[in-house]
Write a protein that binds this DNA or RNA. Structure first.
Lengths: 105, 105
DNA sequence: CCGTATCCGAAGGGATACTG
DNA sequence: CAGTATCCCTTCGGATACGG
């Protein structure tokens, strides 16, 4: 029952198809507070295999940018692009709901 | 690397864990415009097996209410609860992003 | 440090048929 | 109409080890 991208006309569904995934959302949450390194993102509770997959997707979609710093040792940082920052309202909405309805237990 | 619910303290992650799923979001989108019947939701592109799973979850979480009407033939309708309506800002944010960044192609 | 490769069991989900 | 049951293939993802 899955559709082709071109067949998805609803903007809600398009966005959800690309980003409605727990690991993706955790990454975006981490990057909201500034750029982060691979290892730091891992510590948020994502194993390297899954983290690589999600980051690749985010970079491909243009919401995250990967920057290599030519240092010794080399350093890599992931950060939100302006397009990525446009997803912050989604995270804010998730936060508002969670705070209001999912605080207990 | 998956956590127990009690270990998830971040409200963003809590909300995402429960609802960040494409089919769930499609259902919520459909219910935004009023209560819908099972068959109608199916026509949004969700097979009955998956639809049942997602609806059960939504009802368990208290964001959707299932109502049986004692008619002939019996009718069942699914609708957002007030808690479910509190998720509308999430859908709005997804919509805004999609309209701005995912319109082409 | 930043990934990639492999293994492998678990879960997901499409199709279809069937029941109250 | 509103689901449930079954089959079966695909994907996911955790763990671990390894490579540039």
């Amino acid at each position: 029952m899955v559709r082709n991208w071109a067949d998805i006309t609803c903007p809600i569904q398009r966005t959800a198809t690309l980003f409605a995934d727990v690991y993706t959302i955790i990454i975006l949450r981490e990057l909201m507070s500034g750029s982060k390194r691979f290892t730091v993102l891992q510590e948020a509770g994502i194993n390297p295999r899954v983290l690589t997959q999600r980051l690749r997707n985010l970079v491909n979609e243009g919401v995250v940018v990967r920057t290599r710093f030519a240092e010794r040792p080399p350093r890599v940082e992931y950060a939100l692009t302006p397009k990525g920052e446009a997803l912050i309202p989604v995270l804010d909405a998730l936060k508002n709901f969670g705070e209001k309805y999912l605080s207990g237990s």
